[in-house]
Simulated assay, not measured.
Amino acid sequence: MTTAVTIAPPIVPIDAVELTRELIRRNSVTPADGGAMDVVQRALEGLGFACRRMKFGEIENLYARRGLQGPNLCFAGHTDVVPVGDEGAWSVGPFEAALKDGILIGRGAVDMKSAIAAFIDATAQTLAAGEPRGSISLLITGDEEGIAVDGTKAVVAALQAEGEGIDHCVVGEPTSSATMGDMIKIGRRGSINATITVEGRQGHVAYPQRAANPVPVLIRYLAAVQDKVLDQGYQGFQPSNLEVTTVDVGNAATNVIPAQATARVNIRFNPGHTGASLAQWLTEEGEKAGAGFAGKVTVKTHISGEAFLTAPGDFTEVVAGAVKAETGVEPDLSTTGGTSDARFIRALCPVVEFGLVGTTMHAVDERAPVSEIRTLTAVYKRLIADYFAKFG
């Protein structure tokens, strides 16, 4: 009697640099996809991943998983990129993915197509050596650089509703500051935007009694919120800061009191605040500034993310240990910088961020040394092995 034996197909090798180049050649300026998600899906299906395209609005997203058992280690990233700016200022075409003297140049080389490719390469090497004691998944979006409504935020909500279990996540943002491996992000400050609109009554500057000038009201408001010291910092976080980002009146005349004045402010806040508490404060300041004014003050707020922290522990030690082992650098555990999709993923599981040196992200001639892409691949490979040795 002969027993049939099922032989798993061989793991298709992945080269992180060539995969990054293939991704860069896809013009995926938010919200366009340009075929980038297809590239990722083909690579993952070649490694035996079950891939789900999760499209929300016009945004392409992908959730891929290999394995059914826990723990589930997830990698998150984005294929979308920012606009190239002045294309004539680039030394090469921003979507050519040119290699010059060991440097890969192109939009997304740093932020963050290389990290996606490096993790897929690391996963391929891991699987070629045997199955991990758990699952590996990837959550890839095309909406990180945009308004971030139909991307990771929507995917996380859908996965939560389905009861999908993700135990820990690594986001591939370019977190290294000056040297490869010098920084890991374990938290981020929150962000809230506010638009302040003061509606008055237009009139002649020589007859102010016949008008209601909105500009002094707006000035009082901005002075009040700018002068307030929000805090002195929070454990592991820098102080919160409020910045005025624009003031607009649109008055071309010198002898006319305008009818309306607007401004926008942004607050980056630590866990000493919530978005709701800051929104309430900004609204109350609007009421104070408009007291006695023969017009209207409106404050509209939008909370794009709350502050969060992944407390140092076993997971952060695994990530930091992999970084040090492959780079020789002891990474700082940091909460500095802007926002990322980690702010949404933390609703599912503990999350940290690690990737390339980010000095050229969003810049003309965005570039990454091939050697650093190889090092990032090695870090991710060791991270996967150490993670399942610890938690599997």
Score class of each variant (00 low, 15 high):
F237Q: 11
L222H: 04
A263F: 08
D227C: 07
I166C: 13
E162L: 08
H168A: 10
V229E: 14
E131V: 09
D150W: 14
T195P: 00
T141D: 10
V225R: 15
V205D: 09
I166T: 14
L218I: 11
V170R: 04
I186N: 10
I166E: 03
H204I: 04
N255G: 13
V217D: 00
V229P: 03
V198M: 10
E144S: 04
Q125F: 06
P239H: 10
Q260D: 01
G250V: 09
T175L: 06
Q226S: 14
E164V: 15
G165D: 11
V155M: 06
T141G: 09
P216H: 03
D150F: 12
G130E: 11
P132T: 09
T195M: 11
T246E: 08
A224G: 07
E144K: 08
H168Q: 12
A157E: 07
T141F: 11
Q260P: 02
L139N: 01
E145M: 02
E164T: 15
L222D: 12
A128C: 03
V249M: 05
P258L: 00
N255Y: 11
T254N: 08
D182Y: 10
Y207I: 13
Q209C: 08
D231I: 06
L127C: 10
A157L: 06
L230K: 10
D167H: 15
R189S: 01
I196Q: 03
K185P: 00
A252P: 15
G142F: 03
I136K: 09
L138M: 14
N193V: 02
Y207P: 02
S176W: 12
A161M: 06
G172Y: 06
